[in-house]
Design a protein around this nucleic acid. Sequence first.
RNA 1: CUGCCCGUAGCUCAACCGGAUAGAGCAACGGCCUUCUAAGCCGUAGGUUACAGGUUCGAUUCCUGUCGGGCAGGCCA
Length: 579
Amino acid sequence: MTDFQDPKDHLFALVQTALSQVAPDLTDVSFVVERPKQAAHGDYACNVAMQLTRVLRRNPRELAQAVVAALPESSLVVKTEIAGAGFINFFLTPAARYQVVRQVQQMGERFGRCEYGARKKVQVEFVSANPTGPLHVGHGRGAAYGASLAAVLDFAGYKVQKEYYVNDAGRQMDILAVSTWLRYLSLFGIDVPFPKNGYQGDYVREMAKQVKDAHGDRYVHQPWTVLEGVPAADEDAEGHLDGLIANAKKLLGDDWHYIHNFALNEQLGDGRNDLAEFGVHFDNWYSERSLFDSGLVERAIDQLEVNGHLYMQDGAKWFRSTRFGDEKDRVVQRENGLYTYFASDIAYHQNKFERGFHKVINVWGADHHGYIPRVKGALTALNFDPEKLDIALVQFANLIRDGKQVSMSTRSGEFVTLRELRGEVGNDAARFFYVLRKSEQHLDFDLDLAKSQSNDNPVYYIQYAHARICRVLEEWTGVASDFAEARLELLGNEHEAAILRRLCDFSVTIENAAREYAPHVVAFYLKDLAADFHSYYNAERFLVDDVELSLARLALIDAVRQTMVNGLRLLGVSAPDKM
RNA sequence: CUGCCCGUAGCUCAACCGGAUAGAGCAACGGCCUUCUAAGCCGUAGGUUACAGGUUCGAUUCCUGUCGGGCAGGCCA
């Protein structure tokens, strides 16, 4: 069985060998072998001569001559030429060009996998939305990006763990619980004015109704007790809310935990289902509360204390993050003795690092960027290498309806949920739209455009190519095993050459996507591959009288089909047989 | 005020850790279905890569500055 080697890697090795002869003393010359933009410049080009020029101060074309002269013989290379400023252009044999089809045939759904990640453990933490209401379209982008990124990293040879950090310990959860309780009270005609900064959504009323159905009037208390000692809402809105929470805890006792946990589990379960339907799955759900229960928060803060990075001021305990480049120091324990969110986050990241990942990747909304220095600072203070933490910032998705931006706030209840979006445009379009641009680019999600099932939607373009291939193969009377006999040397026209090149670039694309944390390059690759195919489809017929030629072409488009399946799977998009 | 991200065709975006003549889609114009799916293809037109410097053999890419847009800067999460 032939062992396939990527021509690019092969050429790289050839050049390295030649380089060791031309400049034996130079060990760290960086150069690349890559696809030239123009086919006339060969199958691959190498810039090694220009790189050498920098060090040796010699004419690049002369250096290129020397490198070419020192190149070992290769059965894959037909000829080399020196062009432009000193590029070495390689022209491959037909066999070298079409071997990729054999590779696809043998690898099947594993085609495109590479060893770039060397089985190193990485963690991707994403979404991690507060379980205080339905996921909205902003979360959707993080979900689609994180899931695709994780899939790409896995395909590139990493061992990937996908994690969701559950913020189940904070004030936001208390607000949700008290909101649910107030709606519950109103079901009994007990009218406590609902605070503006409570959770307004209908799902809160839903939960209230469920509590009533299950437990009747068990949690009913009179309005004056609910409001006792609570600051007026119009004077101190936050204090008002905190007062309501305090009274709820006092009046309900242990029952408070029931309502709190009920609301938490309802929302968490809802989010989990929503994400699962979206094709987004997690390996681990990590509870913030467990950090407190197990003493990890205390331990992390103690460790910082021992390492001499904390001090007291105004009754609060501060972390001296300015020592690590943060713009100001941060409170980890408040005057009232409660730990801040930052404190549990320190413990969480300490725990992540202790789990032994080569890389820890956090997918965050871009509005959290100011948070990076303090987290990295805390890791440094705990004697970890902050370089192991990568933050992938994802810009928010603006929602556009009727040409106007829709405001999105969970509390206002006016958001469009991820579930609604999926229902309107479908999972495939949603997943694809979300990753179609670089994560750090703003995304205007035009609902009207996405909803209109027009041909503007690029996902159809790719799926259509796949469906067309399936249709052709359906018409064909042979079986897949026949492809092994295909005479691929018959593939010679420019469309076929373009597709062979494209197929060969798939693994490089995966590598780039993994290195840059950029699943969008896979999306663009698939668009290009689909374009190559559609063009071919219109120029040639596959089911022709010449049986040999027909078989070769079918083998080629079957390889395209497989590559599309593999690529679409990374993006969480289906590959339908017919449309 | 300070920090981070962004600025590429009329619009929405690409451009492989710096490479040769910066590419697609939409919109505009002109063609292609008696054939394996026209949700497709072919062609025309569209650019001082915001601006000014710098580094380099070579800059959309790296650095500095200016302008413009977005987002952050809590003992909230």
